[in-house]
Design a binder for these strands. Structure first.
Lengths: 198, 198
DNA sequence: CCAGAAATCTAGCAGCGCTAGATTTCCTAG
DNA sequence: CTAGGAAATCTAGCGCTGCTAGATTTCTGG
């Protein structure tokens, strides 16, 4: 192992340390309070070190977002493919999505809420977004009936995104999280209101 | 008219000037760029004058949000009550909501996106939120069937909110805005996929 | 062991929200 | 009509932000 390699390894480790710390900080104090000074302090280096790894503060949040969307894709895929049938798959995927958003609000914010240049910036991020989108589409497509599957997918994703963000902003009744997603899935998949009461 | 009154009138005018200017600035350059210095410059006063009218910058955005939600409520009510039947009313309300969000993105952001203390802060703002919520509920309630109307309302509102925010972030196909809302409304109201194709 | 390269830090800039204290403007009483 | 005091307004500045140039330290290869 040449010296060069050890340096590179140390550098890569610190790169991960920055990301991990940024993520932890964001989850505990919110992105708005994750400043270069605080982050540098937390990793025990001076601010300029951060700029040796990332172009700016925004790029750090973007990198956390990319890690997050990879996790999210995996979670969605497991939820969907583990289910015994399409209806259960759709329901599991929807619940898994909201659960991820609820358990990792700062990461979710980094991915989908924060004003991001991530759209067309990094070369691989649009691909990841497309992959995530494909998970939604695979889950809802069996219920497309005569409608355009892509449009239906956008409707599903938007509906879940809305529930995630409004729930996080405490604008929806917390105890009804499951009720909302179940009702949404039921109506979107066409299996509508139960025969009569209950 | 005693002197006191003229002063008060001038003060009220400037109050409105601040709000109007803040709103215009936000719509043209985004809330992130609406700073106390820029806003003060735009109204041709120094920064401290702003603090004679509002507690802080956030309170200005909150005030814009309150103006906005009043507008939005009126828009929703007209859309809903003008329609000839419940189905048309729901559709009109949904489209009006998305249109308002699209036409006044900064105001929409002030109301529903910006991290706000508006929840329990101002005395009248929760009432306004409840009133807006009631509009949604009135529109969707006829289609509740056996389901809880409040939950269904939360589902509707969340779904529209998601479409509004993701569309603004350019993460949904712009040309499919109407298609999405129509599909959403159709599925939520139980009038599902057309008999066969097309 | 030592020169040069690489890594890291110190110190600083401009802009942010916000405010204390100086200054100006205005109203009123004599 | 003017003097004085209250009200309105501004200047200047604090501590924070993201970010960077240049000094300094650390490490590496000859």
């Amino acid at each position: 192992m040449p010296t060069q390699s050890r340096r590179e390894r140390a550098r890569a480790e610190r790169h991960e340390l920055i990301l991990r710390t940024a993520r932890e900080l964001a989850e505990s104090i919110g992105w708005g309070a994750v400043t270069t000074r605080r982050l540098a302090d937390a990793i025990d280096y001076s601010q300029p070190v951060l700029y040796g790894h990332f172009e700016n503060m925004n790029a750090i949040a973007d990198a956390v977002a990319i890690q997050g969307i990879e996790e999210l894709i995996a979670v969605l895929r497991v939820a969907r493919t583990t289910a015994p049938n399409p209806a259960a798959g759709l329901s599991a995927l929807a619940k898994a999505y909201l659960e991820y958003a609820s358990n990792h609000p700062a990461v979710y914010e980094a991915i989908f809420v924060r004003p991001t240049d991530l759209e067309f910036a990094s070369a691989d991020s649009p691909l990841l977004l497309k992959t995530a989108f494909a998970e939604f589409q695979a889950a809802i497509e069996p219920f497309a009936a005569g409608d355009d599957p892509e449009t239906l997918t956008e409707v599903l994703w938007s509906a879940l995104h809305g529930q995630a963000t409004l729930a996080h902003a405490r604008r929806l009744r917390p105890d009804q999280r499951d009720g909302r997603v179940e009702l949404l899935v039921a109506r979107l998949s066409g299996k509508n209101s139960p025969p009569s009461a209950k």
